[in-house]
């Protein structure tokens, strides 16, 4: 390839960089989410393109009898960086528990490598929700992370500010 083509290619990248938005990708993902009807996953879209919720139900695991809710925040750099996902409660909608799991803190923060270094732009909100459902479904340990108290006391509001160490991928 000649240098002139390379230069023009780079130029295109640079101009597109500023104008490109995540809109198109998100709209497509939301369409898929609405039509997919995943078992036990109920997405709740909002007027804000960068914010949605999802209610998750787990089947065949007596540890998780309730419905759980995650709040999903989509950063501007999505899908090149992962969404920020937190479990939350909502008294209004009768969602009263943060699921107990060795990788889920009592403030709802999740220690999952998929939300950090293992994220790639090929993943979607859809695939992420399925992963969350499956880490709950496959868990048998009725416990919080060992450092829950220490972490929750000092944790930043945004879990992406936390540098988790993903030591145990088997759970």
């Amino acid at each position: 390839m000649t240098t002139s083509i390379l230069t023009s290619t780079l130029q295109t990248i640079k101009t597109n960089w500023q104008t490109m938005s995540v809109r198109q990708r998100l709209l497509k993902e939301y369409r898929t989410l609405e039509h997919n009807n995943l078992d036990g996953i109920n997405p709740i879209l909002t007027e804000n393109l960068h914010l949605l919720y999802a209610d998750i139900k787990i089947f065949d695991n007596e540890l998780y009898q309730d419905t759980y809710r995650v709040k999903i925040m989509i950063p501007e750099q999505y899908p090149y960086v992962s969404p920020v996902v937190i479990f939350m409660k909502s008294t209004e909608d009768n969602i009263n528990t943060i699921p107990i799991h060795p990788h889920i803190y009592s403030n709802g923060h999740i220690c999952l490598d998929l939300l950090g270094p293992a994220w790639t732009p090929i993943q979607t909100i859809n695939s992420l929700l399925i992963s969350l459902q499956s880490i709950l479904a496959s868990n048998s340990r009725n416990e919080r992370p060992s450092d829950d108290e220490k972490y929750v006391a000092k944790a930043p509001k945004n879990p992406s500010k936390t540098r988790f160490v993903y030591h145990d991928e088997t759970i």
Partner: peptide, 16 residues
Amino acid sequence: NYSPDEFESDAEFEYE
């Protein structure tokens, strides 16, 4: 207008 920078003022806490 969420962006991760919005949380910049939060103390950075390193879990490990």
